[in-house]
Design a protein around this nucleic acid. Structure first.
Lengths: 356, 356
DNA sequence: CTGAAAGCGCTTACAG
DNA sequence: CTGAAAGCGCTTACAG
């Protein structure tokens, strides 16, 4: 190499205001852009000494590759989309925090995309979102994860995705994070059986929701296994809303009263609380109530609500981690199991069982 | 132009699988890429006929410009960041929905970024986020919007931002969306005065939060204007948590009891509810309670809670809209005013005033 | 009003 | 293990 003039300034660093680019790093390190690129992308085809020298330089300069330029060259962005369909606020936020746990310092960012699954152009809307932004991957949150339409569309356009689902389902293309809602409901049944309840009622979620079906089946089967068959008159379909909990509570408490009511989510349990309060019933003495979600509400109600905790943040973390790991990763399905949190809304029944 | 071979296929459309690019559109329309670019960017320097022809073609082909390529060329992405610091879940979600309302079909997307304002590297973390992603703009949500550190950093790196703030503050560089928490608290005072309450207590938020200070001042000033000076013993500082509401309720109801308690958010009001229930007090007969936020909780509690509605979604919408509009827009500050929702937790005091 | 050239900061495909 | 050339899909700066 021909001798250069001794530099007056301490080497040609990138200009003050502007961020360093791969060209700056290459020049400063005395290697080609391609070598720097290999290091950015963790290619093994770089000598150790070269790698370490360049990495030290990148750290010193505070270099970070431009995701826009990388995305353009890769034909794929560094964005993970989260698609959800209006569940409760706490659930969405927990899921976001979980995904962000996995994405932190990874160079990926989380883009949120609510949608209305019932709307006919939901699939088209998500497709446009994914294709236009060239998303790296998509997390499908219940209830957007239910039904196969979105998953099939994502498969068709070759987009990675992870689905949080209440129960295992058929999916050849995406990752599944199964939350086993059925097990949580069965645990509720076990708790009520252990307390000695025989006069038990159930407020379900909307039959269109897979989670609702799972909770219903898990609960009824476990009760039946414990020798209690719940009559149809004590099974009321709600829609996960507070109001539907109120309505169900009014119906159930107007008849021969059960000693315990399992509500398929906390909001509906709050509705039952309201009816019980108006009827001057004491929870848990006159009535045991159980919810599902372990939302903040569960601790805020009085008495505090026995409920099923879902580990939502953990589900979100696993989903996001699966999307940013190597595609050849060998874990198509993960399990996150719920568990019962016993609080003050459940106790032994006061009244003797009506039969026997 | 020299004669071309008659095309066997109906013109050289972009290949089946791949999305059309600006080059395809230019070729198909018989104009230069630059002209298409002008149309994408709404430049007036295009003849109307040309514009309409090209727009029709873009629609027909389903062309949408690649945000990665545009971002690289513009040195700025089409992403709006939302920075928040752990307020309640419903508040975050409402804010996100609001921002998304404004961003829908705009080509911009929303990237969420929680941060811990108390952490010393919060500012650095947000700076890295903004610079690495070359964000188009940032929405600062309370409490991340309080304090000048983040705003000053964003100004320094020349990043557009909009701040949702509880009260007007000094800010030369960003947009302000002022929620006037003070007015909401004053309205609560007016409501309690109108009902005839004179024995009134206040549970404040943490003194470090601007929203808490605003609500406290608004409430105390309006009560004073109505002739009621609240003694210091009836002003308890909470931290917006349920537990702090319980603690405040226990303190307040152990002394000479007030006939009304204004809690600076709904969660703390739920804490007071719990204490009242344990003490077998009837709300609102024995005690009126008012919250702030009008969260879903307000409707779920029994009796339903009188509270202040904040129009959070609207705030988020205005903030996002301000960021994607022309920079020369003449509206540095917008106002979103809260208003009181009267429900079942407030009534006239039962007892005669202690003093005449 | 319109366009040809160069460039944004990376990566792929190829060559050594 | 390393690099020079071409390209990803746009825009800027310049010229007409």
């Amino acid at each position: 190499m021909p001798a250069r003039k001794p530099p007056a300034a301490p080497a040609p660093r990138p200009a003050a205001g502007k961020a360093a680019t791969i060209t700056d790093i290459a020049r400063l390190a005395g290697v080609s852009k391609k070598t720097v690129s290999r290091i950015i992308n963790h290619s093994p085809l770089v000598r150790k000494g070269t790698r370490e020298k360049v990495q030290a330089l990148m750290r010193e300069v505070g270099y970070a590759p431009d995701p826009l330029a990388r995305g353009l060259a890769f034909r794929r962005s560094f964005l993970i989309g989260m698609v959800f369909d209006n569940p409760t606020a706490q659930y969405i936020v927990d899921m976001q925090y979980g995904a962000l746990d996995a994405l932190r310092d990874s160079g990926y960012e989380l883009v949120v995309h609510p949608c209305d699954t019932r709307s006919p152009d939901c699939v088209d809307s998500v497709r446009r979102f994914v294709q236009q932004q060239k998303l790296h991957g998509v997390i499908l949150v219940p209830r957007a994860s239910e039904g196969q339409a979105l998953a099939e569309m994502l498969t068709a356009i070759n987009c990675n995705y992870a689905r949080i689902v209440p129960a295992d389902c058929d999916d050849q293309a995406g990752r599944l994070i199964v939350t086993h809602d059925r097990d949580g409901a069965a645990e509720v049944a076990g708790h009520l059986l252990a307390l000695g309840h025989t006069e038990v009622a159930l407020v379900t979620g909307p039959s269109s929701a897979r989670s609702a079906a799972e909770r219903t089946e898990g609960f009824l089967q476990a009760m039946a296994a414990g020798g209690i068959d719940i009559p149809a008159s004590r099974i009321i379909e709600g829609d996960y809303s507070f109001e539907s909990g109120v309505a169900a509570g009014e119906t159930l408490l107007a008849r021969r009263r059960p000693t315990a009511i399992f509500c398929s989510n906390d909001e509906m349990a709050a509705g039952v609380y309201k009816v019980a309060a108006r009827a001057r019933m004491n929870i848990p003495r006159d009535l045991s109530v159980v919810g599902f979600d372990d939302s903040p509400l569960a601790s805020l109600l009085w008495p505090s609500l026995t409920s099923v905790r879902r580990h939502t943040r953990e589900s979100g973390r696993i989903a996001a981690a699966a999307l940013i790991r190597a595609e050849s990763d060998p874990l198509p399905v993960a399990s996150v199991r719920p568990h019962l949190i016993v609080r003050d809304s459940t106790a032994e029944p006061l009244r003797a069982p009506a039969s026997a």
